[in-house]
Amino acid sequence: MNAINEAISPDAGVAVGNIEINGVGIELGRGADRFEAVRNLDLDIPAGQFVCLLGPSGCGKSTLLGAIAGHIRATHGAVRLDGERINGPHPDRGLVFQHHTLFPWKKVIDNVAFGLKMKGVAKAERNKRALELIKLVGLGGFENRYPAQLSGGMQQRVEIARVLINHPRVLLMDEPFGALDALTRNMMQELLLEVWEKIRTTVVFVTHDIDEALFLADRVIVMTHRPGRLLADIPIGFPRPRNRDLLTAPEFVAIKRQCLHLLHGEHEQFKQADPLQRLSPLGPSLITETQVHLSE
């Protein structure tokens, strides 16, 4: 336990990871394609809290996540981390996608150690720390595989380990288990909670799966249909550590029913609307934006 904490956060001790979202509105696209993804959102997430953003698809929850990550700029208002305004991606805010973004040409260990390599940590030291994280996510023995040689669940574990090695203040997850089969998804949820018990970073987890949100979170934020606004802010006080039995507990079912009603109301109101594309936390004009950033 001590060894792990040292490996992950050698300079820990300062309780950080407080996210403040003040009057945030986000407009995406250009010209006639421009639309409002998020409108006038206020949210304060204290350090160390596990928050799930729940909402219908296309409600702007991934966009909001992208704004916290720094890949998308808020059109109005400001997103702050520990009082500092976010204006670009940073290793302090680790982002995990639904489909892995591991580097196919790097072995598991080199993928996990990437953040340390970028910090200039010597090879022996970064490999040692990467191995500890690989073991923490249950992938000991797989460190010399390439990502293509792993199953979907294993790839997401590597992704989580790669983000955690930077001991981020915030862990941002965009439907990270959405592409996994039900059984693997359950296991990954439990694994995530176990890892989080050891590394108490702030987590913002986007999902449209009510069970997943209630099982994982300290607090569930339900968002409206586009443009995304705050519909409900539900504290989830179930004791930890949690296990699967929770899913059938009466208190759980009561909150689930409440969420279903909220989301169903949203759906009724908007079911005539055009189907929405799934938005990425990287924004719609991804390619041009990254190129602009690189040529700067």
């Binding site: 940073h90 290793p91 790669r162 690189l294």
Partner: peptide
């Protein structure tokens, strides 16, 4: 996405 990921990893 890989470029964006590399950037956010520092």
């Amino acid at each position: 996405r890989l470029i964006a990921t590399a950037r956010s990893l520092g």
